[in-house]
């Protein structure tokens, strides 16, 4: 009888304690999970003047919160890709010697269409559209 009472008290205390613990831990775990922050929707950015970038060179342009690499292949050939390497998120750069997009972190290379040439990147870089309006270079998302 005594054991039965003790057992009941143990169950009640144990259940109460566990329930309390869950009720404390649940808000804490939810709190630690960062909420999704909506990014301002950017569809088009100005990448500067035409004369700012010489042929066979590239530069990183801020597109909303993401980096985009703008490459001037020749006088009239402009290209833009996501500058985030598809391997492990490093920011890529343009290699003027090799005429390729290169990631210094793990030596991944992409061609001037964004396709993987060598190294560990699993897929191609996302391409952006480039337009020249007067003397201004404008990068936009592909429709």
């Amino acid at each position: 009888m005594d054991t039965g009472r003790r057992g009941l008290i143990r169950i009640l205390l144990g259940t109460g304690f566990s329930a309390s613990l869950i009720s404390f831990l649940y808000p804490v775990l939810r709190f630690m999970d960062p909420p999704a922050v909506p990014e301002a929707s950017v569809n088009e950015v100005s990448a500067g003047k035409v004369q700012d970038l010489k042929p066979n060179s590239g530069k990183i342009v801020r597109f909303g919160s993401r980096p985009v690499i703008l490459i001037r292949v020749s006088d009239t050939d402009w290209r833009a890709f996501s500058a985030v390497c598809t391997h492990l998120n490093c920011t890529v750069q343009y290699s003027e010697q090799r005429h390729q997009i290169w990631c210094a972190c793990h030596n991944g290379t992409y061609d001037l269409n964004g396709a993987v040439v060598s190294g560990p990147p699993p897929k191609a870089l996302e391409e952006y559209a480039v337009k020249v309006r007067g003397d201004e270079v404008v990068i936009s998302r592909h429709a």
Binding site: P27, V28, R30, F31, D33, P34, P35, V37
Partner: peptide, 9 residues
């Protein structure tokens, strides 16, 4: 306002 249970913590 944005973090879950942030107001409570």
């Amino acid at each position: 306002t944005r973090v879950r249970f942030g107001w409570l913590i």
